[in-house]
């Protein structure tokens, strides 16, 4: 029971961490608070479903299509919708409010399109639903694969951001967007890339989620919420923070669902969120702001 809860908590937490990394890039580097993020995840989950059920494409191959599509969508959304807001914004706070409002509208547009296309039903498909025994507990193979994928994507992104010049430039923008141009970094380009990268990660997360969870066209809000909580817990723009906070959230949710009541998982998530906000507003791993 305990090992089973621990393992499925890790799977869920790995997915949350993967998804939250994209949002922390978008918010930390591009300074866009994207409330439509969960809708991008769900859109990718539906894309994986369509590819699996009509084209017979397995989700791993689906990733090769979904991730570039998510990247492109992020790039376009930033270019068309966000950069006018960035140019218009007087300070960080007004950009935050503008971006929240604009992406709130985007949320309803994407959700509406998905409702028209797929209806309001629960959607899932069966892929690699074979039992695998790990540490004496039985787990579905697709969940193990989900965890592996989350680790691969998360680790790859971490290496990309910490080991390459390009990643260092992105992190420099996250730390201080005003000083970054002084060392020859194109902040606008970095912001656009980070937003697109976030879109790609959202798509990866959506495909991974679709392998072992049922989704509906309206379940994006919950994913946005959880990703936001993970981002704030981990400290905005902090990848390792997002990773650890995602795992913690997944474990807590699974333990609450196993030992307390499955209906109270969201309430537990909120309690953690409130506790973190009151105790360490800069995040568990964040620097103290200002």
């Amino acid at each position: 029971m305990l090992v089973a809860a621990l393992l499925s908590g890790l799977v869920l937490g790995g997915t949350y961490a993967l998804v939250a990394m994209g949002l922390t890039l978008q918010y930390g580097i591009s300074r866009i608070m994207n409330l439509a993020y969960g809708e991008m995840i769900i859109a990718a989950a539906f894309l994986a479903y369509v590819m699996f059920s009509t084209l017979g494409l397995n989700p791993i191959a689906g990733l090769l299509i979904a991730v570039p599509a998510g990247f492109a969508l992020g790039y376009i959304v930033y270019g068309v919708m966000m950069s006018p807001l960035v140019r218009r914004a007087r300070d960080k706070a007004s950009l935050e409010i503008d971006s929240i409002l604009a992406t709130f509208g985007l949320l309803f547009v994407i959700q509406g399109i998905m409702l028209v296309t797929f209806g309001a039903n629960f959607t899932s498909y069966s892929y690699l639903n074979d039992p695998v025994t790990i540490f004496g507990t039985v787990l579905a193979a697709n969940r193990v694969l989900a965890l592996v994928l989350a680790v691969v994507f998360g680790g790859g992104l971490y290496l990309l951001l910490t080991r390459t010049l390009w990643g260092t430039a992105l992190r420099a923008v996250a730390v201080n967007p005003a000083a970054a141009p002084l060392v020859g970094i194109d902040v606008d380009r970095a912001a656009r890339l980070a937003f697109a990268l976030g879109g790609g990660l959202a798509a990866a997360g959506g495909v991974v989620i679709s392998m072992y969870q049922t989704v509906t066209a309206t379940s994006g809000v919950v994913f946005t919420m959880k990703a936001l909580i993970v981002v704030i817990m981990g400290g905005v723009g902090n990848l390792i923070g997002a990773l650890s906070a995602g795992l913690i959230l997944g474990l807590v949710e699974t333990f609450v669902a196993t030992y307390v009541d499955p209906g109270l998982t969201l309430a537990a998530t909120y309690m953690i969120f409130l506790a973190v906000l009151l105790w360490r507003p800069a995040g568990l791993f964040g620097r103290v702001a200002r």
Partner: peptide, 24 residues
């Protein structure tokens, strides 16, 4: 007491939280 963005995020999920608690 916190920055405005935390308030927005919290209120964003509040309806969902209350709904799930009432349902539960």
């Amino acid at each position: 007491r916190l920055a405005g963005v935390y308030f927005v995020i919290f209120t964003f999920g509040l309806a969902e939280l209350v709904r799930q608690l009432v349902t539960w």
